[in-house]
């Protein structure tokens, strides 16, 4: 983070223009995502499928397969990246990520437990369990990370996140081993995939994610202050406890909503905010909207790549993000965390 602080002074008009450009890029990758897939479908047919639907195989593919998955990727990518950025700012931890800190694992466990114990098999109801699980995991990991002398440090938070992830994942695995039917129902969802989601499901998660995104953008300035340190923030008159609580709520809404929609997709929340910071500096008023757009672009591209690499087979998008995110995590641990 320190290496990029000179960007703090980058001018607002330039950054605003950048946002417009990023929005254009997002639109372009969404179009690419709808145009390319396992089936060869011409641009004219795609256009017809969108505006004069005739029920043919091609039109069905465009409408029920490609458009929903592109939109889901936009939502999930944006949410996870913003959740990651907020977490990194508030906890001053460059390695914060909803996946690494156990929040996605909490959401996943809650869903699997709901399927196993309550027999719930509706993706719509998953959302609420995912949110509850994400919230609980966030509380626990934060409590663990701040326990002991010296309060919360990036290392402690990361270690407690890793420990919690391991614990929650083993519980999830345990339930799945006990109950094959649950596994059958949720295994596709646990892969972290944006395929097979219909628009109805997306519309159910949409309000949560929108509230989360809006909340995050409103918090931008406060997160910037807090990212300078607890003492600085207090010195500037910030009521840090409230900001943290609001930030936690935002993260739970975003990460929980994203997990309910796509299953746990790792590393977006880790990689994107860092990449964004490199361009826009350390001001969260800019980092957050840029993260939303960049996260969406990244996940849409990852999904397109996952579809095209092994065509006509597909790689779940969670695998693609891990391919990029894994090495980046090593880089962060090696160069960014000196403690």
């Amino acid at each position: 983070m320190t290496a990029t602080s000179f960007h703090l002074t980058r001018s607002s008009p330039a950054l605003s223009l950048g946002l417009v450009v990023a929005l254009g890029v997002l639109l372009a990758v969404v179009i690419v995502s709808v145009l390319y897939g396992a089936a060869d479908i011409g641009a004219a047919t795609v256009w017809a499928a969108l505006f004069s639907y005739d029920g043919s195989t091609e039109h069905l593919i465009i409408r029920t397969l490609r458009v929903p998955r592109a939109l889901v990727a936009v939502l999930v990518g944006g949410s996870l990246a913003v959740a990651g950025a907020v977490m990194q700012g508030v906890t001053r931890n460059p390695m914060a990520d909803p996946g690494l800190l156990g929040i996605e694992a909490g959401a996943a466990l809650a869903v699997v437990a709901a399927v196993h114990f309550q027999g719930i098999s509706s993706l719509a109801v998953y959302t609420w369990f995912a949110l509850a699980g994400a919230a609980l995991a966030a509380v626990v990991v934060y409590a663990l990370g701040s326990a002991g002398r010296g309060g919360i440090t990036p290392l402690k938070l990361t270690v407690s996140g890793a420990a919690l992830t391991a614990l929650l994942s083993s519980l999830t695995t345990g339930i799945l081993l006990l109950d094959r039917r649950t596994l059958d129902e949720v295994c596709f969802w646990l892969a972290g995939s944006v395929a097979g989601r219909d628009l109805g499901l997306m519309l159910q998660a949409l309000p949560l994610i929108c509230v989360g995104l809006l909340g995050a953008l409103l918090l931008g300035r406060k997160v910037t202050t807090l990212s300078l340190g607890e003492d600085v923030a207090r010195g500037l008159g910030q009521r840090t406890a409230w900001v943290r609580a609001a930030a936690a709520l935002v993260v739970v809404l975003l990460a929980g909503g994203a997990v309910a929609l796509a299953g746990p997709v790792g590393f977006v929340g880790l990689v994107i905010p860092h990449a964004v910071r490199f361009f826009v500096g350390v001001n969260y008023r800019w980092i957050l909207p840029y993260s939303a757009l960049a996260g969406a672009i990244f996940l849409v591209l990852a999904d397109v790549a996952g579809r095209l690499i092994l065509r006509p087979q597909e790689l779940p998008v969670g695998v693609m993000t891990a391919l990029v995110g894994g090495p980046f995590f090593v880089y962060l641990v090696r160069w960014k965390v000196r403690r």
Binding site: A105, T165, L190, A191, G263, G318
Partner: peptide
């Protein structure tokens, strides 16, 4: 106990 995202 491994991360769920790679389980499937």
């Amino acid at each position: 106990a491994r991360p769920q995202r790679i389980r499937t």
